[in-house]
Design a protein around this nucleic acid. Structure first.
Lengths: 123, 123
DNA sequence: CGCTTGTTGAGATCGTATTATCATTTCAGT
DNA sequence: ACTGAAATGATAATACGATCTCAACAAGCG
């Protein structure tokens, strides 16, 4: 049976409040302000179980370990800041993807990542 | 000083002839047909030095170790076949990326990956 | 409140990709 | 061909993220 622990509550909370995909380390740091003493093992365990029960979605970015965001948002992509290494959500989706697919290939999905500077780092 | 060895020649050759990004294991398998006895250590060493001298470019895809392709092609993206796990090059680039960038963010570059079935696996 | 059992935290352990080690080989200049 | 130095290959060692172990803890029930 699944228990409602402080740790699990803190982890869910920081991800839902952040509005952007967080890595395990980011989750740990943020959740420790609500739940001192929280360990990294619990973060990994909880992220895994939240993904399995569908509450979280793994976000895979090129050359990076996975991050996690709340499930249920509509289709979107991400912006990866090269300066602070944070990842932000983007609205919308580019046009003409089908046009890029050569004959014979069957297109099932796509991933797009924009790179640059976030507002805080662009200054 | 840099020597022209059979191993290095075989590795450059398979990458240039493949026309798609190859991972270290793929390079090893393909190059061994030209250079029997080739070891994985030499593949890693050579890939690294070819990247450093600018002959190869690292291709990072979500959730995958890097692959390598010849430098000098014009801007392009990739198609990742979910069945055979091979990666292919795509021509062209989607429209409207700038439109996706929220105010305050400075866009420097982007990566796009299409997923699906390649011609050989779609059948 | 007290018991049962799932959960936690610290550290050990693992898995995979990559790099270092080192004796041997082989390239390249003479 | 001879020689010195760089390159190679088998294997050990590393890096890193993620998972496992297990004693201590705490959620939830009666």
């Amino acid at each position: 049976m699944k228990r409602d622990t402080q740790q699990r509550r803190a982890i869910r909370r920081v991800i839902e409040e952040s509005g952007r995909p967080l890595g395990p380390k980011e989750v740990l740091d943020a959740a420790q302000t609500h739940c001192p003493g929280l360990g990294i093992a619990t973060v990994y365990r909880t992220l895994k179980s939240l993904v399995e029960e569908g509450a979280l979605t793994q976000v895979e970015l090129p050359g990076e370990p996975p991050r996690y965001e709340a499930t249920g948002k509509h289709h979107h992509h991400h912006f990866h800041c090269r300066a602070c290494d944070r990842v932000f959500e983007l609205e919308g989706c580019p046009e003409g993807l089908r046009r890029l697919t050569p004959p014979g290939f069957s297109l099932e999905s796509h991933e797009l990542v924009l790179y640059g500077r976030c507002p805080g780092c662009a200054a």
